[in-house]
Write a protein that binds this DNA or RNA. Structure first.
Ligand code: FES
Ligand code: FES
Lengths: 144, 144
DNA sequence: AACATAATATGATTTTTGTCATGTGTGTTA
DNA sequence: TAACACACATGACAAAAATCATATTATGTT
C-alpha cells in the first residue's frame, strides 16, 4: 500500500530471519524466498543492500547464507524501511511537492502531518523482534 | 509518499479547478498543467479518467476545457483517490500479502490497522473544497 | 582441489510515467 | 450552412523505473 515491493520483501525476509534464527544460523536465499513467497534472485539483491548497510549479515560458502546477528542491536523497522526506500521516505510531500515544510505546505499538509508523524514514530519505536514476540500467540504469516 | 504520481497530479489538478472556478468556467489542459507543474499530456489523460467516472467534467471546442460542476455534489478525496488507484487501495496489506484480514493478519496488521483506518476516514470525510476553504488564509501551494 | 553459496554484473520483463499523432465534437464566423 | 479553429478523446508509442531472471565471479568450507 505505501511501500514498494522491494521494501515489502525486505521486511518479510528480515522477519523470517529474526523468527527462525536462534543462534547464528544461516539461511540460504532459496529457503528465505520460498518461506516468504518472493522471487529469490530479486530478494537476494535486496538483502545484499541490507547487508551493505549493516542491517543484516551474510556469509559465503557452504552452510553460508543470510542471518541476523542476535548479539548486535535490534533491527528497528524505520531503519529497515529507510535502507530500501531512501533516507527521505518519511519526509516527502503527500502531493509530490519538492519539499514538505511548515513554511510552504501543500493543502493537505495540515491534515496529513499528524498521521505521517505517528507512522514515523510507530516504525521508529518497534524492532522486528518486538513485532515477532507481540505476535507469537498465533502463527506468523509471511506468505502470500 | 503513499500515492502514485498519477494520483498526486489528479488531486493537485482537481484542487486547482475547485480553487479557480467560481461559475462554470473551463480551464484548458495547458493552463492546468502549468499551474500545477505537471506534464500536460499525461495530466490530460488522468483528468479524462476522472471525467469518465463523473468526478469532474469537460467540454470540447473553443472556450472548452476541464471544470468542476459547482452545483453537483462535492468531490470527496476518497473518491478521487479510488478513481485513480483502484477500489481496493485502502484495503491492501502493508506487507503485500494477498488479503488484509483479521483472520490471517500479517505481523504488522495489528499495529497498522488503526492508522490505516484513520487515514481512510480522513479522506472520506474531507472534500476538495473543504480543503480549499480550510487553507485560504495563506496562498494555496500546488506547484513543485 | 572440489564444492557450495553469496556477490556481482548483466539482461529481460513489466509497470509506470510521459509524449506524439490523429480523431471527434463544439462553437465561431463568414 | 460550410469552413475553420479550438480543445478534449483516444490510442499508439517511447522513456524511465521497478521488478524479475540468468550467468559469471569470488569466497569460504570440506
Ligand atoms: S507539504 Fe505536502 S505533506 Fe507536507
Ligand atoms: S494483513 Fe498486512 S496490514 Fe492487514
Amino acid at each position: 500500500m505505501i511501500f514498494s515491493k522491494s521494501t515489502e520483501y525486505a521486511i518479510r525476509a528480515t522477519m523470517f530471519l529474526c523468527l527462525n534464527s536462534s543462534g547464528n544460523e544461516c539461511f540460504k536465499i532459496n529457503t528465505i524466498a520460498s518461506a516468504i513467497d518472493s522471487p529469490p534472485f530479486f530478494t537476494s539483491k535486496i538483502l545484499q543492500t541490507l547487508v551493505r548497510q549493516n542491517i543484516i549479515s551474510s556469509t559465503k560458502g557452504p552452510n553460508g547464507g543470510f542471518y541476523v546477528d542476535k548479539k548486535s542491536k535490534p533491527i528497528i523497522l524505520y531503519d529497515l524501511i529507510i535502507a530500501v526506500e531512501g533516507p527521505d521516505f518519511f519526509d516527502k510531500c503527500l502531493l509530490g511537492l519538492s519539499t514538505c515544510t511548515e513554511k510552504n505546505p501543500c493543502p493537505l499538509h495540515k491534515d496529513f502531518k499528524k498521521h505521517k508523524e505517528e507512522l514515523k514514530q510507530l516504525f521508529k519505536k518497534k524492532s522486528v523482534s518486538d513485532i515477532m514476540t507481540e505476535n507469537n500467540n498465533g502463527k506468523i504469516n509471511l506468505k502470500i
